[in-house]
Each structure stands twice: as C-alpha cells, then as structure tokens.
C-alpha cells in the first residue's frame, strides 16, 4: 500500500502540492487525473525519489520515502511520457544497458521482452521502430527490475489505436501479477477502461478519490442525462446546457424525449443516473 499523508511541496512561493493525502491499495490501478500544472508530475517525481517533500509523510509498502529512497526505487519503476531510452542503440543494447545497471535477472529480462512482444525487434536500432514499438520498448525497460509499483506518465501519447489497445491490455494484465499501477493520462477513455480507482488532483490538492464505479454513478442522483449532437437554437421547453446535455428525471423522460423529437434534435446518448468521467473531471476541476 502507498500512504501519502499531508504532503506539501513548494517551489518558491508556489505550492505545487498542498497538504495532500492519498492511499493507494496494493495491486490496484489508480488513474491520476489533473489538468496541466495541477501537481501530477510533482507527485510522480516525489514518489520516484526525484524530488524531496517539504513536509508530510509517504510510506511505500512499509518503506519511508525519506530514509528508504533506494529501496523504494528498487521496487518501483517509472515509464516516462518521453521515450526514455537511446535511439542510436538497438533494442537489445538498450535492454542490456538498463538491465545491467539494475542487476536485473535473466528471467525478468526475458519476461519484459515477451510481455511487450519485442522478440523480433531486438537487433533493430531504436530510432527505426514505429511509435507503438518505441512505446513498448519504453515500457519493457520499466519492467526489467520486476517492480511492485509502476508509474505510467501518459504512456500512449502519439500511439496508433491498435498499439494503444495492446499497451492498455498489457497494463491491465499487471493487476493479475499483483503490480500496483499509477496511471496518468489525458485520455479519459483509457482511465475508464483500465483503472479501478481515480484520484483527481487540482491546484496541488486531491479534490476527489474514489472507485471509478462510484465516481461515474449517482452523481446526478435521480436525474437522467441526455447528450445531444448539436442544437443551434434555444428551445424554451428544454434546458440545454453548454456541454450539449439535457438533464431530466424519470417522470419527465417521455415528455422530454417528445420535445427533442419535435425539434428534430439528434441524440448522442442517454445515461441513467450517471455522467461521463470527462464531464465529472471538468466539473470537479473547475470547482
């Protein structure tokens, strides 16, 4: 388990993290959401021992971040957003290098190659790989030390849909191996697809932390949310929000649908008692 208690990190007068507290269960996949500058990268950097906290406590699998930084690094791994390897080296030379500096076992080395389907690319120079293959190599390097925790910092940026699916499937499979994953992404669909829990960080504070299920349900209580394609005119009978949603209740649903039909408005989707993660994230972040 990762326990973050009242952690503050300041850059001059700016509080990048302001007394944040968060608990992440072992073996879970946590989606960390936040707009740019919210404090996600600072939190990931702290958890990876790259920067130190000003106050508070962090415990990672029973190890203290201040005194056991090396031990924590040994059981964790970061997959940076950038392709953190050497383009001029071959796939094998990259894996050999990162493997040797971490004293990785042959078993882990082979497993990292297998999981990321790099067997046929070993002799290829990294610069010649496709975007998806590069992402897979980036992830494989992070698996060499057989980590208990993996931090993914937007790992699917610039990846084609097929490779993205493969990457997301492989991340989901880490749960079966008991690996704890902390995942940041701007793609809400990815978070919805793989994460068990979601923490929303805004202005250096955790503004919400819950299971994905709880976060998506019951947010508008008894209301039904109808998403429409577009509407270029105001209809008095319908309260069309700026985000092209109409909220109604079960008792008024047929009446509302009739009005929508009368006005020839196309419906995108109807959600009963729920909202999208993206909308929820925007609502919470704006508060």
């Amino acid at each position: 388990m990762i326990k973050i208690k009242n952690v503050t990190k300041k850059y001059g007068e700016l509080k990048a993290l302001n007394e944040i507290s968060l608990e992440i269960k072992e073996g879970s996949i946590l989606g960390l959401l936040g707009v740019n500058g919210a404090g996600k990268t600072t939190l990931l950097s702290i958890l990876n021992g790259l920067i130190e906290i000003d106050s508070g406590d962090i415990e990672v699998f029973g190890l203290d971040i201040k005194s056991d930084k090396k031990e924590i690094n040994n059981i964790s791994s970061i997959i940076p957003q950038h392709l953190a390897f050497y383009e001029k080296l071959t796939v094998k030379e990259n894996l050999d290098f990162f493997s040797k500096i971490q004293n990785a076992t042959q078993e882990n080395y082979t497993k990292a190659i297998e999981i990321n389907s790099l067997e046929n690319l070993l002799s290829q120079e990294a610069s010649t790989l496709s975007g998806g293959q590069k992402r897979r190599l980036n992830i494989a390097i992070g698996l060499l030390n057989n980590p208990k925790i993996i931090y993914f910092d937007e790992p699917t940026v610039g990846v084609d849909p097929k490779s993205r699916n493969e990457i997301l499937d492989s991340i989901k499979s880490y749960k079966k191996l008991g690996i704890t994953v902390i995942y940041t992404s701007h793609y809400m669909t990815e978070i919805e697809r793989i994460c068990d829990e979601v923490a929303i960080i805004s202005k250096g504070q955790i503004v919400e932390h819950d299971t994905l299920e709880n976060m998506l349900s019951n947010r508008v209580s008894d209301k039904i949310c109808i998403e429409i394609i577009h509407s270029d005119r105001k209809i008095d009978a319908l309260d069309i929000k700026n985000d092209l949603t109409i909220q109604t209740t079960e008792s008024k649903l047929f009446e509302t649908l009739a009005t929508i039909k009368e006005n020839n408005i196309a419906i995108k989707q109807i959600r009963y008692g729920s909202t999208s993660l993206e909308k929820h994230f925007l609502d919470v972040s704006e508060k």
Partner: peptide
C-alpha cells in the same frame, strides 16, 4: 541533452544511479 529531454536521466536517477 537528449538524456535530459527524453527523461532518460530521470529514469536513471529513479534506478538509483
């Protein structure tokens, strides 16, 4: 600079180098 920009230095630091 490539190591710095590509976050390879970050990765190496997180590997206790």
């Amino acid at each position: 600079i490539n190591e710095r920009k590509q976050n390879t230095l970050t990765r190496l630091t997180s590997m206790n180098i």
